[in-house]
Write a protein that binds this DNA or RNA. Structure first.
Lengths: 116, 116
DNA sequence: GCTTTATTTCACCAATCAGTTAATTAACAA
DNA sequence: TTGTTAATTAACTGATTGGTGAAATAAAGC
């Protein structure tokens, strides 16, 4: 996973990590706070690793406050990811439109008068 | 990678696969058409595998036309991915706003206490 | 100094990933 | 039937991922 965009998407490709980001969207939190909901399912080192993945992707930054490591969200890479998607969104929606038109013409074609 | 969202993000976490999607956003293409730009770097079976990943994520659908397999984009999972991101983008931007406000108040010296 | 709390690092393991070459299937063309 | 083109499957490999428990580090607190 060399490039930043790949790192971002890879980091998002895990429900635990997405949940951590969701939690962080409500505000700063320490590692143990972030870990707490998952400790039934996995160990603390596992969370440390997930956080490292998020950090390497630039999605979070970790501070230092005594023995705590307050984490906070960094939206920048996410914006890059959304931007990548938006770049192709027009084409995707065109294709969806074509599909919609096709389905509509196939079923009935009543409401919104498109060519049958 | 059980859940659909994870599958989508995982599928996007590879530059070859993103390039394939980009190509497909310009219109339907056969496997060999899609493979052509990459055959200098990897074999055809490698492309077949990438296409399978994209297909399993629901990002493309493969048709059959004689011995060809015309692939086309399916934007639905991408919409779900963008939706997930948008859901938190507001919060991220709020955080950026708060940071901005904080920095502004700090530079202005608006000394407002933080009571217990 | 010793103990506690918060977090990370280490060494390991099983599963998945991304690629390979060689063989195979599918559809068509002669 | 034989051959050609398009694409997939099979069997294998090395690297990465996601987890573990045990030990190590860091900063307080007593």
């Amino acid at each position: 996973m060399r490039d930043p965009l790949s790192r971002t998407f890879a980091a998002l490709a895990d429900p635990t990590r997405r949940a951590i980001l969701a939690r962080l969207s409500e505000g700063e939190a320490n590692v143990s706070d972030l870990a707490e909901p998952f400790l039934r399912d996995m160990s603390l080192p596992a969370i440390t690793k997930h956080l490292k993945v998020l950090e390497n992707a630039g999605l979070i930054t970790k501070g230092r406050k005594a023995q705590w490591r307050p984490c906070q969200l960094n939206g920048e890479p996410l914006r890059a990811a959304v931007d990548w998607m938006e770049q192709y969104r027009v084409a995707w929606e065109d294709q969806l439109d074509r599909l919609g038109a096709y389905l509509k013409s196939k079923s009935k074609g009543a409401d919104h008068g498109h060519e049958t």
